[in-house]
Amino acid sequence: MSQDDAGIDLDTSLGYVLKEASSALRAAMEEVLRPLGMNVTHYSCLELLAQRPGLSNSELARGAFVTRQTMNVLLQTLERDGQVTRAVEAAVGKAIPTRLTPHGRELLGRASAAVRSVEERMLSGMTPEERTAAFGSLQSMIRALRAGADTAPGNEGESL
């Protein structure tokens, strides 16, 4: 059987290794966030709001890589728990902006420290130069894939 018949060689597939790294990173993050009563999506939402206050449900969902429905459920829980506030109605259009509360900021501080420890552990065997090169390589891959999505069959004229 030729390589074409066998499919992708997982031992040399960069895509497979990236997915494996992503899964390992998520599992390690979940492990350090669990004692704080959080998961990766919860943490991502708070981090996004700290960096970009007033994001809408749709913007938060895109930034956290979840559906709008999943984000809406999470935001209802975070609002109930006093971690975020949302306007009763939208100032403009239909989007209701969300902001962190002081309690949400305090939780985010502890979660960010935990997540930083995971990232440092992940990068501990790399030199600063290797870290910079890895970061640049991953950004290049993302750009290439996003550019390819614009030109893929069936996506003519569509943008991301």
Rank of each mutant, 00 (worst) to 15 (best):
G104T: 03
A91I: 08
D4S: 15
S44C: 07
E106T: 07
E106M: 10
S22W: 01
E158S: 13
A24T: 03
Q69I: 04
G82D: 03
T98D: 01
Y43W: 09
A21D: 13
E30Y: 07
A134F: 12
L160M: 14
H103W: 00
E120M: 13
A21T: 05
A144W: 01
S58D: 12
G63D: 02
G157R: 15
G82A: 01
N72D: 14
Q3C: 06
L60K: 01
R52Y: 13
T127N: 02
V118N: 04
S44M: 10
A24R: 10
N39C: 07
R105N: 11
L145A: 15
T77M: 11
L108P: 06
E130V: 01
Y16N: 09
L100M: 03
V73W: 04
G109V: 01
V88P: 14
S140W: 09
R26M: 05
S56N: 06
N72F: 08
A114H: 02
Q3L: 10
S112R: 15
G93C: 07
H42R: 14
V17D: 12
S112H: 13
K19Q: 14
S159E: 14
S58M: 09
L60T: 03
T132V: 09
A61S: 02
S23V: 13
L49A: 02
A6G: 02
L33R: 08
M141K: 11
S56Y: 00
R26P: 01
D150Q: 14
S58A: 12
C45A: 11
R131D: 02
P153F: 09
G82Y: 01
E156L: 10
L123W: 09
G37A: 05
R26N: 11
R68I: 01
E31G: 04
E20F: 05
R52Q: 15
A152D: 06
L107R: 04
T67D: 05
E129G: 15
V118C: 01
F135P: 00
G154M: 08
G157P: 04
P97G: 07
R143E: 15
E47F: 06
T12Y: 09
A50H: 03
D9M: 00
S137K: 15
A91V: 11
E120G: 00
E79M: 12
F135W: 08
R26Q: 12
S2E: 10
L138W: 00
A147F: 00
L33E: 04
G82K: 03
R34I: 01
A24D: 13
T41G: 03
K19L: 13
R80Y: 11
S56G: 05
S2H: 04
L123D: 05
H103M: 06
G157I: 08
Q51K: 10
G109N: 14
S140C: 07
R146M: 09
Q76N: 15
P53V: 00
E89M: 13
R80Q: 14
A114S: 12
S13G: 06
A144S: 10
D9E: 06
L60N: 01
G7Q: 08
I96P: 09
S117R: 11
A28L: 07
A87D: 14
L33F: 03
Q83S: 03
V17T: 13
G157E: 12
T12F: 09
T98N: 08
A28Q: 12
D11M: 11
R26C: 04
A21P: 00
